[in-house]
Design a protein around this nucleic acid. Sequence first.
DNA 1: CTGAGCCTCTCTGTATACAGAAACGGTCGC
DNA 2: GCGACCGTTTCTGTATACAGAGAGGCTCAG
Lengths: 218, 218
Amino acid sequence: MSRAADIAYAEIRGLILSGQAPPGTRLKEEELAARCGVSRTPVRDALRRLEGELYVVRNGSGMQVADWRAEDVEELFALRSMVEAHAAARAATRIDAEALEELRAINARLEAAIARPSADIQAFLEANRAFHARILAAAASPRLPAILSLLVEQPVVRRTAQRYGRDALERSAAEHAELVRALAAHDPEWARAVMTGHIRRAYHAFVDASGSDPARAT
Amino acid sequence: MSRAADIAYAEIRGLILSGQAPPGTRLKEEELAARCGVSRTPVRDALRRLEGELYVVRNGSGMQVADWRAEDVEELFALRSMVEAHAAARAATRIDAEALEELRAINARLEAAIARPSADIQAFLEANRAFHARILAAAASPRLPAILSLLVEQPVVRRTAQRYGRDALERSAAEHAELVRALAAHDPEWARAVMTGHIRRAYHAFVDASGSDPARAT
DNA sequence: CTGAGCCTCTCTGTATACAGAAACGGTCGC
DNA sequence: GCGACCGTTTCTGTATACAGAGAGGCTCAG
């Protein structure tokens, strides 16, 4: 795709996700343009994309960083578990041997990342993302990726994972393995159930983590 | 919001939904700009929005009208029933008396529209849209509207409704009434069940309609 | 001292101009 | 006659210029 518009998109998204632009921050096109070293036009493009992904919201004229913390986190996880479970069920009826092998390889990477004495959270997150993305691809439904991009806030995933103890990390890996078995059996309801549990466990991990971290409490 | 960008959005969306721009059509910015009487800038904005809503897709450089007909229609309805049922369940726990009264009023309009000797499909569609929108609002979940906008293709709704016989129209009204009862009882599972059935019945109506309409068969 | 009105200033929305890339057609060589 | 290469044309991406709306501050009157 385009060069400048992608730079702007990545930069602004980074500002939001890193917390440098906290929720409620007014995003001024000119200021962002200067920061990205591009003109206002690609910045506008980037802001439209981010608006569609609900990272920013309009208030009157003018964009500001959306406050996802004010949202009902349980609702977010409920929607995500519903949609990802659906994706898993659909994938179960369509997945082929090659994709299953890829999933096993990805989960092997994930296990390797947490096997080290000090678990490599970054590698875990990357493998986890790849695992879910691969299942999404196997579901082969054009609209599912767009929907999930509205529901999966990477900061939430990261915060959740960073609070995982070793046992929780290992449980994640085990659930992934279980998911692969369900997919290999082409059993949609099994896959749905495992994925639902997987996401809902992540939800409770997130809530526990938030509760024990006063700075992050909403 | 802005004037020209909305004009462009409505115009282009209209072109797509009316079939004047069939799937696969290359959408040229300059051409659209001339057609809408605005410059390319608001047209670009409109195209970004439509891209986010999956009405158009990029291929390389250049946008073209997405081919939703190639999509798995059952999958679309499955997702929609899942999400709308969720919205109904959530609304059931939150709805207040005022909103319930509004829903009853809207459904009364709907019943009036189909009571006439020759049912007023246009009024039916409008009331139906308002009914679902009101429940969505009662669910009070910021992301649900964005998700549903990805799933509800108005041409599908219209084609389904136009094929409804009087009995199907009356069943729709009756299901709406049942939904209001479930919401009034603040019973999320009841509301979820009724909404699921409501959408799934619409799915079968759509399939039957498509099957009996060779020109529309995918 | 407070409130209202006006003025200014900034920011967005829109239009236009320019550059680069990709597609199309024509022509030349084989 | 067919294929490949090159030129042209067109379209998108980007930058900039301008106008209108809105917010904020300042001043003046009560």
